[in-house]
Design a binder for these strands. Structure first.
Lengths: 224, 224
DNA sequence: TTAAGCGTGAACAAAATGAACTTTATCAAC
DNA sequence: GTTGATAAAGTTCATTTTGTTCACGCTTAA
């Protein structure tokens, strides 16, 4: 049984997380902390194996608590559960060895997958005294299987063309299908296919631009 | 250019690592430290982006240095390069957010892959201000499927044919599979096999050339 | 001489693209 | 409101190239 501490300032959300955990075999909620102060007390009193950690807390950030845990050398793993979508926060969390980073709103299957992976990870680490490169590669962050596998784009989408389209938005904040086609040297049809694909991935958002007469133009921009 | 600090007590091994790094585009060795003390001084003086870190050092362990780096909150990533095969050391390293963990004896392709992955990771993190779950899953440790990857040895690749293909690019900046086949007197299929192999080695990069109608041509060029 | 291994390429199947075409959303004039 | 002109979106499918398969022949070892 893996004992979990939930650190989350909103009691309603904390309750939801607790309910989620109950639905996953092999995990039990050891406690709930509504602030960093409370979390520190509970961590000292009885270290759990795993902490579900929010970033925005009343008396500091989850990253600070994470650094505290690492500083104390506690044998505790951490899964971030947070609305913090800044790349720098993610990077900071990764530097401090979080096991996973899940963005709110929490979707249960995503959390469940992560918990199962943690379970598997623990059993594999505990099983062995000594390890080999193959074991490391299976367990480690950016190893082999993890990075190289990019979710294969569907048929009709070529990864090189897709990259070309993505690159455009580094320079141009917003584009029509016609513009994009001209810029990468393809037809409007092809550009449109990729732009719509990126919209379906939630990478781009479409807007409408009205001209003086005729059907309005569809303009694509980077999301948020 | 990514600046790297090598921390390794054996000067001979340190030299080998330095040679390896020189062979990988986009990395430069900023310094070599033979002890933890030396490493701390260099880290303070001029933090590198990446540290290649051994575990067994004369005045302490690499894990201690790693914890020092995290404690100081330095914006530094770490790849462990070590003979330490205890599971607990790996676990400790992971808790402190190492990017990779490579067991000695170091095999160059394994290190190179890791460096390329780090390069890719950096560019992806820097590219965005804000992130979405999909981005996290691509960048994070245990995300997505963790099934084993095929350790594909270069079977089907003949060293003489490979050299012929490589020679072509001294004269021609970019080629299609068809061109290459004609130039070395083989079929398109064979030329393609080698070109794709070189892409997977990061020696070549593919682009697409759109014609007036029909599937576009894949054009291969030397990397950067 | 036989067997096993491996690189090759002809033939085939699948995929990505764009010209031509159809549909749709807007504006302006009535 | 209705209608017509307009401009762009959205769709189709022939075309061109990629990507894959597998039998062949060449080499090597027993």
């Amino acid at each position: 049984m893996i004992h979990v501490l939930i650190v989350e300032d909103d009691p309603g959300i904390a309750e939801i997380h607790q309910q989620y955990l109950k639905q996953v075999d092999g995990f039990s909620v050891q406690g709930v902390a509504l602030s960093i102060m409370e979390a520190k007390i509970q961590l000292k009193a009885k270290p759990p194996q795993l902490v579900l950690l929010d970033v925005y807390l009343p008396d500091g950030t989850g990253i600070e608590l994470l650094q505290f845990i690492r500083g104390e050398g506690l044998a505790v793993d951490v899964i971030m559960l947070t609305a913090a979508s800044e790349a720098s926060t993610l990077q900071n969390a990764m530097r401090n060895g979080v096991f996973d980073y899940i963005l709110k709103p929490i979707i249960f299957p995503r959390l469940r997958d992560s918990l199962y992976k943690y379970q598997k990870y623990l059993s594999q680490v505990n099983q062995r005294q000594d390890i080999q490169q193959g074991d490391v590669d299976r367990l480690m962050p950016m190893s082999e299987s993890n990075t190289e596998q990019q979710p294969r784009p569907p048929k009709g989408i070529d990864s090189v063309t897709l990259d070309n389209i993505r690159q455009l938005f580094l320079e141009h904040p917003s584009l029509s299908a016609d513009d994009a086609g001209k810029l990468i040297g393809s037809s409007r049809t092809t550009a449109r296919r990729y732009l719509e694909y990126l919209v379906s991935c939630h990478e781009l958002v479409p807007a409408v631009s009205y001209g003086s007469v005729g059907r309005p133009e569809r303009i694509y921009s980077l999301k948020s």
